[in-house]
C-alpha cells in the first residue's frame, strides 16, 4: 500500500476534508490502488523528457499579457459580489472568527 492511515489524515487536513474514522482505512486502500497503478510510469523511459506543464506549449507560445487598464465591464458592484455569499453585512463577507493566526 502506498498510502497508510496517517497519510490519509495528513492530506485530509491539508485539503480541509474530514474523513470519518470508519472510512480512513478504505480511503487509504482506494488511493493506494490508483497510486500503485501509477507506478507503471516507473517502467517508462523518461530520459530527456522535461516536464510538460501546458498542453500545446510548443505551438501556443508564451503567455499573452494584458495592458494596465481598467476593465469596468467585468467589475462587480458590492451588491453583486456579495449576492451569492452565505453570509454578508455592510458590504463585507462574514466568516466565523479566525482563531489560529496562520496567514503566512
Amino acid at each position: 500500500m502506498s498510502i497508510d492511515r496517517e497519510d490519509v489524515k495528513r492530506i485530509a487536513e491539508l485539503a480541509r476534508l474530514e474523513i470519518p474514522e470508519d472510512r480512513i482505512e478504505r480511503t487509504a486502500r482506494e488511493l493506494s490502488a490508483v497510486l500503485d497503478y501509477a507506478a507503471a510510469l516507473r517502467r517508462l523511459d523518461l530520459e530527456g523528457c522535461e516536464p510538460t506543464v501546458f498542453a500545446g506549449l510548443g505551438a501556443a507560445g508564451p503567455a499573452p499579457l494584458r495592458a494596465d487598464a481598467l476593465d469596468d465591464v467585468r467589475r462587480l458592484t458590492p451588491e453583486t459580489a456579495l449576492a451569492a455569499a452565505p453570509e454578508h453585512e455592510d458590504d463585507a463577507f462574514l466568516v466565523p472568527p479566525v482563531v489560529e493566526n496562520l496567514n503566512p
Partner: peptide, 11 residues
C-alpha cells in the same frame, strides 16, 4: 508523482 507524471506527459 506530480513531476514524474509531467515528464511522462512529455513522453
Amino acid at each position: 508523482y506530480y513531476l514524474t507524471a509531467q515528464r511522462a506527459r512529455t513522453r
